[in-house]
C-alpha cells in the first residue's frame, strides 16, 4: 500500500469512515455533473423510443417483430402482450453500445479527467492515499454501472406499464410465472447487466491512469469497446471469443429460461471478475507509480 507521501504526520491510517466520506463526495461529484445526467437522460430515453415504436407498429394489431422471428432486439415480440418485456428488450437494446459507452465515459474520465482539470494533486494531498483513491474511483464507476442499468430498467418498466398491459408472463421456455416473480427476474437481469459492465469499467479506469487527457481516455475506452464488439463478430476468431469481455453479455436472457441456465451467466461473471482483477491491478500498478504533475 502506497501513500501520496506528502509527509503529513497525521491520519496515517484513515478510518473507514474517512474513505466512506471520500466515496460519498466522489459520488456526489459524479452524479451532479451535467455530463452524467445527460448520459442517464439518453439511457432513459431509449426505452421510451422503443416502447412508442412498438406501440405504433402494432397499432393495427399486427405482432411486433414481423412474425418472421428473431428480428430486432430480443424479446421484442412479447412486448405488446406484457409491458414487463420492455425491460428486457430495452436492456438488450442498450447493452451492446449505449450502456458500456456511458460507463466508458465515466470510467475514462475518473483519473484522467481530474488530471486534466488539475484537481488530481489536490485529491492526493488529502490523506487518503493513491490506492484508496483508485478504489473509490472504481467503486464510483461501479455505482454508475448499476445506476445506469436501473435507469434503463425503471424507465422501461414505467413506459411498459403505461403503454402495454402487465400481468403473468411466459418465460422463453414456454412456462408461466407470476408477475411478482417476473419483477424479481427483471431485477436479477438488471443486476446481471450491471455486473456485465464491471469489466469495461476496470478497463476504462486503467486507460484513465495512462493519460492526462480525459477526452483521450474516454475515446480510447469507447474505441476498445467497438473493436472488441467487432472482433466478437468475426467467425475466424472463434478461439478468441470466450475471452472478449462482451462475449457473454447477452447471457442475461438465460435468466428468462425455466429452469434458469446458469452456464453462460457464471462464465460472464467470472470473465468480468477476471477483467476487473487484471485491469484493476494494472491501474493500481500504473497509478501508484505515476508522476503526478497535474
Amino acid at each position: 500500500m502506497s501513500r501520496a507521501e506528502t509527509g503529513t504526520p497525521v491520519a496515517r491510517t484513515p478510518s473507514p469512515l474517512w474513505s466512506l466520506g471520500l466515496l460519498r463526495s466522489e459520488l456526489a461529484t459524479t452524479f451532479r455533473r451535467w455530463r452524467t445526467l445527460a448520459l442517464l437522460g439518453v439511457l432513459a430515453a431509449v426505452p421510451v423510443l422503443v416502447g412508442i415504436a412498438v406501440k405504433i407498429e402494432t397499432g393495427d394489431g399486427s405482432p411486433a417483430g414481423g412474425g418472421g422471428g428473431g428480428e430486432g432486439p430480443a424479446f421484442i415480440a412479447q412486448v405488446t402482450n406484457n409491458g414487463l418485456f420492455l425491460v428486457f428488450t430495452a436492456l438488450a437494446a442498450t447493452l451492446p453500445f449505449f450502456l458500456p459507452m456511458a460507463v466508458g465515459v465515466v470510467a475514462g474520465d475518473a483519473i484522467a479527467g481530474e488530471a486534466n482539470a488539475g484537481t488530481l494533486r489536490y485529491l492526493l494531498v488529502a490523506p487518503a492515499g493513491r490506492t484508496r483513491l483508485l478504489l473509490t474511483k472504481y467503486a464510483t464507476t461501479m455505482v454508475f454501472c448499476l445506476a445506469a442499468t436501473l435507469v434503463v430498467a425503471l424507465s422501461a418498466l414505467a413506459v411498459g406499464a403505461l403503454l402495454f398491459p402487465l400481468g403473468d408472463l411466459t418465460t422463453i421456455s414456454g412456462t408461466r410465472i407470476g408477475f411478482a416473480e417476473g419483477l424479481g427476474r427483471a431485477l436479477l437481469i438488471a443486476l446481471a447487466v450491471a455486473a456485465s459492465l464491471t469489466g469495461i469499467a476496470a478497463l476504462g479506469l486503467f486507460v484513465s491512469t495512462l493519460t492526462n487527457s480525459g477526452i483521450a481516455a474516454m475515446a480510447t475506452t469507447v474505441g476498445l469497446l467497438i473493436t472488441v464488439q467487432i472482433l466478437d463478430q468475426i467467425p475466424q476468431l472463434d478461439a478468441l471469443h470466450p475471452y472478449l469481455f462482451s462475449h457473454y453479455w447477452l447471457s442475461f436472457a438465460d435468466l428468462m429460461r425455466e429452469p434458469v441456465l446458469w452456464d453462460d451467466l457464471t462464465r460472464n461473471l467470472g470473465l468480468q471478475a477476471l477483467y476487473a482483477a487484471v485491469f484493476g491491478s494494472a491501474a493500481w500498478a500504473r497509478f501508484t507509480a505515476k508522476d503526478i504533475n497535474a
Binding site: A277, W284, A285, R286, A289
Partner: peptide, 16 residues
C-alpha cells in the same frame, strides 16, 4: 519498485 508492481496484473493473468 515501480516495475515490480506490474507483476501483480501479470500474475493474475497467469493464474487465470
Amino acid at each position: 519498485r515501480k516495475a515490480a508492481r506490474y507483476v501483480v496484473p501479470v500474475a493474475v493473468v497467469g493464474v487465470a
